[in-house]
């Protein structure tokens, strides 16, 4: 059993914190690396003392700051788009907080993701620029700007010039060039207004499917524990009707494979009972499970994920020149860093 799987079981309330101090340290360090420390402590804080309490307090103050930042930025978004009639849909962490999901307490968030209709994209960008958001330093070159605008599913990231909050504006859920095609319009149509707010979130079932897509099929599964905990949590808050409907909905919007992958992973992790869901065994689920284990399997799985991420994102005729360019930039940076350190 890897420590990561223990951390997930504790988070899911299916296992209690170990008592052996060496195991406690392993679990806490593992959760800290996965940015899950505050989540881990959120439901066991009353039982802590000594150094564990110090560490728990530290983690929860940091997570509260994230939640405050999210609430503040969500309120700013409402002001920016007030009266424009544009539907601003919060995605991922911002959505979990806005939907007041219990598991969002303690969840670390670094940036805001929103989804808008492609027709509104330029107007949304203009409004955000007018409200103080500027292009992020990481994506200012002409190449990066064109790359995002021509091929990606989002605008080049924007950052607020004073608050330094990063916002990613999506108009689709997968890159334009992706091998996976999702019916984004159907998900937008099913989105729901937030409680008491003028913003929207995806329907609960779509939140789960989007997390499955984003977590297992649109990046290298670099935060395996957090992704798995998100998936488990989003699955757990679904109504019985939604759970029964999940594969039907998934098929309707083009995410059937992703739904099977995510549920297969949750079953492998022991977080969901395989008898309770008709999830097929899935290669992505097996890979993701291997990635969470320790040892050589995890290293290999990580390699496969990295290659697969790029394979899924764009066809070879775009991918090869893109990677060649990135490799060139990386080499140039290395050479420059080498020169500087010898001066």
């Amino acid at each position: 059993m890897s420590t990561g799987i223990d951390v997930l079981a504790i988070l899911a309330g299916q296992q209690t914190m170990p008592t052996d101090p060496v195991r406690v340290k392993a679990v806490i360090d593992c959760a800290a690396r996965a940015h899950l420390l505050a989540s881990l402590f959120s439901h066991m804080r009353p039982h802590l003392g000594g150094k564990a309490l110090d560490v728990a307090q530290n983690a929860s103050i940091k997570a509260e700051a994230d939640a405050r930042m999210l609430a503040f930025e969500a309120e700013r978004l409402q002001r920016i788009f007030h009266g424009t009639g544009m539907r601003i849909i919060l995605l991922k962490g911002a959505a979990y907080v806005a939907a007041q999901h219990g598991f969002s307490v303690g969840r670390r968030v670094s940036d805001i993701d929103i989804l808008v209709s492609e027709n509104d994209l330029l107007a949304v960008e203009k409004a955000l620029r007018g409200a103080g958001f500027i292009p992020h330093a990481h994506a200012q070159s002409v190449y990066d700007q064109n790359y995002y605008r021509n091929y990606m599913h989002e605008l080049p990231p924007l950052v607020h010039k004073h608050r330094r909050t990063v916002i990613d504006v999506h108009h689709r859920l997968t890159p334009r060039t992706s091998r996976i095609s999702v019916d984004t319009a159907a998900m937008v149509a099913a989105s729901q207004p937030t409680a008491g707010g003028a913003l929207y979130t995806l329907a609960p079932i779509d939140q789960f499917l989007h997390a499955a897509l984003h977590g297992l099929y649109d990046n290298s599964f670099d935060t395996p524990l957090r992704t798995s905990f998100d998936l488990f949590s989003l699955w757990s808050v679904l109504s019985a009707a939604d759970k029964a409907d999940v594969f039907c909905r998934a098929a309707a919007i083009g995410l059937e494979v992703q739904a099977h992958g995510a549920l297969d992973l949750l079953c492998r992790l022991g977080l969901v009972d395989r008898k309770s869901v008709p999830a097929r065994k899935s290669v992505a689920g097996a890979l993701a499970y291997a990635r969470i284990q320790s040892g050589i399997g995890a290293v290999l799985a990580h390699g496969v994920f990295s290659v697969r991420e790029h394979w899924l994102r764009m066809p070879m005729r775009l991918l090869i020149p893109h990677l060649a360019r990135k490799l060139g930039l990386w080499l140039r940076e290395k050479v420059q860093a080498g020169r500087q350190s010898h001066q």
Binding site: P21, V22, I28, D29, A32, K51, V55, N58
Partner: peptide
């Protein structure tokens, strides 16, 4: 030298 929870790693 025994592994213990710490503030910094």
């Amino acid at each position: 030298d025994t592994p213990r929870i710490g503030d910094q790693n």
